[in-house]
Amino acid sequence: MTDVSASTTAEIAREYRAERARRAKRAAVLKHIFLALTSLIMIYPLIWMLAASLKPDTQIFGDIGLWPGTFEWQNYAQGWNALPVSFTTFFWNSTVVTVLSVVGNVISCSFAAYAFARLEFSGKTIWFALMMMTLMIPYHVVLIPQYILFMNLGWVDTYLPLIVPKFLAGDAFFIFLMIQFFRQLPRELDEAAMIDGCSPFKIYWAIIMPLSLPAMATAAIFSFIWTWEDFLGPLVYLNDQADYTVPLALRSFISSDGVSQYGPMFAMSILSILPILLFFIVFQRLIIRGIAMSGLK
């Protein structure tokens, strides 16, 4: 009796295991098909652009297929020097504006966030509310007053309107992001540092900032992407083609007389997204490290 039931139990268990494995496999296959399809839809424009950057102009809009018949690598060489000013200059311009913006945003916004999260000053809640309200105002609303302001300062046709505001903690989104992060750091750390002889600045510099690398990296990544691909700001404030940033330069490929060089334009578009990709790859490691560090108590 016991023998029979023992063998049956083992058999039943084996069958259950096998059935479970079959079901898991079926679910996994379905899941991956679904994910692959959705990814393809998301990534299709990028693939299309990559393909277009390698096609001759005549094929770009004429040919439905993605695969270029002939690889027009010279689109890249041509595109780099197609405009009166070389892309070397445009990339350099973009790099200067973007790097300074990222540095400015990370420093100034974290200062403001530290003040809101940790320091006491009069009218703190009112200032905080005001700051949050600026989140709700679209950029286009303040565009004209801002332009008049910078014109009166004589800053139009320079990079100053694109860079200086970044050093003045102008981006409420980053400030808010950092405030939230700082708030979850235990206050006892500040107090221990206070007893250890730290000034409020030293607490920020030696304790809060090193522990907030994930927030800093997030702000840096977003700041980089938004500044690098900003079109409207440079369009409004920069007039001289030699000062153009990459997005403005790309626009120059489309000329009003109808003779547009699409192949070289797409080639340069592909090159223009590489810095963003590189920056993201480098900085996302900090985000992951930050997550690993936050598991302490």
Partner: peptide, 9 residues
Amino acid sequence: FQSYALYPH
């Protein structure tokens, strides 16, 4: 401190 408050980094 009760939570030790060691500097984690």
